[in-house]
């Protein structure tokens, strides 16, 4: 394996010379950070949280026969969870130790 000594270094130098290594991935975790990407992600997060909230509310209502109160409650909870998701999108809680 002697002929491979320093190969990685030379490869890295060559790549840097040709500008093949992109300087830093976009956003945290390399997620696409274009305006459209962020906007679409935020929309999907809110929508899916709402869907989950509404589904839980409907199922609980059907089970307990309390239509429409739990539905309304979990609709609001789902909306709050959607806002929380969007908040997490910009302020991830990883690494903060919280």
């Amino acid at each position: 394996m002697n002929d491979r000594d320093g190969f990685e270094d030379r490869l890295r130098a060559a790549r840097a010379r040709r500008g093949l290594d992109r300087p830093g991935e976009a956003g945290r975790g390399g997620l696409p950070a274009g305006p459209w990407g962020i906007g679409f992600r935020a929309g999907v997060e809110v929508f899916s949280a709402l869907v989950v909230g509404i589904l839980i509310g409907l199922l609980l209502d059907r089970w307990l026969g309390t239509w429409p109160w739990l539905f309304l409650l979990f609709f609001v909870v789902g909306g709050a969870a959607g806002v929380l998701n969007v908040y997490r999108l910009f302020n991830p809680r990883r690494g903060t130790g919280s």
Partner: peptide, 16 residues
Amino acid sequence: VEIVSYLSRPVSLSIR
């Protein structure tokens, strides 16, 4: 809210 947020992960993942 946290539970709904956690449960919404697979939904957002699949819908996207």
